[in-house]
């Protein structure tokens, strides 16, 4: 059984009280984990993550748990099941079935980089966690997350002119998610931004000079990388998510 917070373990057995040779040892000792045998381990996930430039450091992890202890999602936000150390462990084991239980959780990393700051082994934890999330998505285990959709909208937006059109991105992303601000609210915010010189969207959007030459090169790089990350995925499932 992998190491994980007790509250998250399935199949715990508890006894009300526990006596060993006449001595009452009730308390934490009265919890037992039923032994299980797992045979469906598949290392293609850790092989894939290691093969990504963002995931090369995964093998350095020695499971100390420092990343999880300081992780702002785990500790400050209190999302107990968000446990970067555990995600790495499951990937190293190739225990995809267990990892699939966290398909809706892995993507929520907010990139605060406290884990990278503190990891004593030099694991780029934040990027490794994102790679694990990408694998889950590309292999069809997890649906494409809102964060992935935002990353795509952001990248598309900036590649267009070299400079981000913040308001345009906001609108495009919100519309894509099926959310729209009430028109009055939009008008109020828009006017405030416009009169304070902060609205550079649509025809007012800024652009980097000379961008026209670099843009196609960057777009080609992006397309190559997006295609490249589909290599090495297990063929048992047809890949679904991803652009």
């Amino acid at each position: 059984m992998p190491i994980v917070e007790k509250s998250l373990v399935e199949g715990l057995q508890r006894t009300e009280t526990l006596e060993v040779e006449g001595i009452d040892v009730s308390g934490d000792w009265n919890t037992f984990i039923a032994s299980r045998v797992h045979t469906d381990l598949d290392l293609s996930i850790v092989d894939w993550v290691r093969g990504q430039p963002q995931g090369t450091t995964i093998d350095r992890c020695w499971q100390c748990g420092t990343c999880t202890a300081g992780c702002c999602l785990h500790t400050d936000y209190g999302l107990e099941e968000f446990n970067p150390r555990y995600f790495i462990y499951l990937a190293q084991l190739g225990f995809e079935k267990e990892l699939a239980r966290y398909a809706q959780t892995v993507w929520r990393c907010v990139s605060c980089n406290k884990c990278v700051e503190r990891c004593p082994k030099g694991v780029k934890v934040e990027e490794v966690v994102h790679s694990i999330g990408t694998y889950l998505e590309l292999s069809g285990t997890a649906p494409k997350s809102p964060a992935d959709r935002f990353d795509e909208a952001y990248t598309r937006n900036l590649l267009e002119r070299g400079i981000l059109d913040e308001a345009g991105l906001f609108q495009a992303f919100e519309a894509g998610e099926g959310r729209t601000l009430p028109t009055r609210e939009k008008l109020r915010m828009g006017l405030k931004l416009l009169f304070s010189g902060r609205l550079h969207t649509g025809p007012l959007a800024k652009r980097t000079r000379g961008w026209g030459r670099l843009r196609p090169v960057l777009e080609r790089m992006l397309a190559e990388d997006l295609a490249g990350r589909r290599r090495g995925l297990p063929s048992r499932r047809p890949p679904t998510g991803g652009p």
Binding site: E127, D151, L158, M221
Partner: peptide
Amino acid sequence: EYNCCGATEVKNLSHDVSVAL
């Protein structure tokens, strides 16, 4: 004539684009 740095978003799609920007 600066361009957007890619922040923390681009790197999740492409390592090389996130370094080139």
